[in-house]
């Protein structure tokens, strides 16, 4: 069973990464605003698509759903998610396999085919 956890912010993500084992996938998306929905419409669209393909990921893997903060924070070109060489996130949503060059960005995160490829491929 794929473990799925949600963290908010950069520090929480770094901490979570020290605690997980096995393959790690990270989904970066915009945090929910006051209405309880993410300010990033593509993130909202991507969520259910990723969710319904999660069973394609290896049994022992973890999906960390990382909320990157509000729009103003995210748009800052110097925020940690963009700067950290481990992530170098350029846009939200970004779904990546941690420690590999495999990543999907924006509308790619809404495509079943591509998400399955990311979850299924071992190299």
């Amino acid at each position: 069973m794929v473990r799925s956890i949600t963290v908010e912010g950069y520090e929480a993500l770094k901490k979570a990464l020290t605690e997980v084992q096995g393959p790690v996938f990270i989904l970066f998306s915009g945090s929910p605003d006051d209405s309880g929905v993410s300010w990033c419409p593509d993130c909202v669209k991507a969520d259910p698509v990723i969710e319904r393909n999660l069973d394609r990921a290896p049994e022992d893997s973890t999906l960390i759903h990382c909320l990157v903060g509000d729009r103003t924070f995210w748009k800052d070109p110097n925020n940690e998610f963009r700067k950290d060489p481990q992530f170098l996130v350029k846009c939200v949503p970004t779904l990546l396999k941690f420690g590999s060059p495999q990543k999907l960005e924006e509308e790619q995160c809404c495509k079943d085919d591509l998400i399955r490829m990311l979850f299924e491929e071992e190299d």
Binding site: S100, P101, K103, L114, M117
Partner: peptide, 19 residues
């Protein structure tokens, strides 16, 4: 090699996306 890895992946995404 990291850059090449991301190019390899990019081609795979393109092919998959184009069926």
């Amino acid at each position: 090699q990291d850059h090449i890895g991301s190019l390899n992946w990019g081609y795979r995404v393109q092919l998959r996306d184009k069926k």
